[in-house]
């Protein structure tokens, strides 16, 4: 299936090369095309870095936000619901714009493009991570808490040594999906000028006037990146399953 997509994409490019498309802009055998291609690919660095840092932060926030959801105290549960509902209601693009243009004024700080993008993506994703962790933790049998009680573990030790290790194993596939989602969402930070894949493509379109060819390359870049990451996630998943 995924090989088929690649073939179709490849066929398009080859067809374009022979016709009157402007494939010269990204033709690696010409000097100009090679430079342009390198320019496009250089966006990979920030796409990957932004996504990884953002997902790491959002996992941490998600974990912290998930814990009160498991409390017997309804106010603590309320805090969790409040956070999740609010954050989920804000479109990612809007959050990115607000964090970059609004937050510095409100908080009286300066945030560079990279951290603004990372913070906005992480916040937006954290609500989903929180829900994933909540479900994962709730799927652990209550006998595990009772056994922890009988060996006198306190709450934090129970979570750290007994519940979370089991919950994390179960939510790993879902976390992998979030990473893939994050790689795609990171294209939105191009609007504030982060030099990632999409931004690079936009810049090249402005100078070369060849949107079709440039954006086709952009599609392929994301496609290959996402397929590779998905395959890696699936592999990891399999490994975890057989190890258990």
């Amino acid at each position: 299936m995924k090989k088929m997509y690649l073939f179709i994409a490849l066929a398009f490019i080859l067809a374009g090369c022979s016709g009157n498309w402007g494939w010269y802009v990204v033709n690696p055998t010409t000097e100009g095309g090679f430079v342009n291609l390198k320019f496009l690919l250089s966006g990979l660095y920030y796409t990957i870095l932004t996504s990884l840092v953002a997902i790491a932060i959002s996992i941490l926030i998600g974990l912290v936000v998930a814990l009160p959801a498991l409390s017997k105290n309804k106010y603590l549960r309320g805090i969790n619901r409040f956070y999740v509902e609010i954050v989920r209601a804000i479109p990612i693009l809007v959050l990115i714009l607000w964090v970059y243009y609004g937050l510095p004024q409100v908080a009286g700080i300066t945030i560079d493009v990279f951290w603004a993008g990372v913070i906005a993506l992480a916040l937006s994703d954290s609500a989903f991570e929180a829900e994933i962790f909540r479900a994962g933790i709730q799927s652990v049998d209550k006998g595990q808490y009772e056994a922890s009680h009988t060996i006198s573990l306190n709450y934090l030790d129970t979570m750290r040594f007994v519940i979370l290790p089991q919950a994390i194993r179960r939510v790993l596939p879902a976390l992998g999906n979030q990473l893939v989602y994050m790689l795609k969402m990171s294209s939105l930070v191009s609007v504030i000028g982060m030099e990632e894949l999409t931004r690079k493509a936009n810049e090249l379109v402005v100078t070369e006037y060849r949107p079709l060819e440039v954006y086709t390359i952009l599609v392929l870049e994301y496609l290959i990146l996402i397929l590779l990451v998905s395959a890696a996630v699936r592999r990891l998943e399999k490994k975890m399953n057989t190890g258990n």
């Binding site: 006998g143 595990q144 009772e146 056994a147 290790p165 089991q166 194993r169």
Partner: peptide, 9 residues
């Protein structure tokens, strides 16, 4: 306990 409740991991 009846169900042992060992820590499986």
């Amino acid at each position: 306990f009846q169900q042992f409740n060992l820590f499986p991991h």
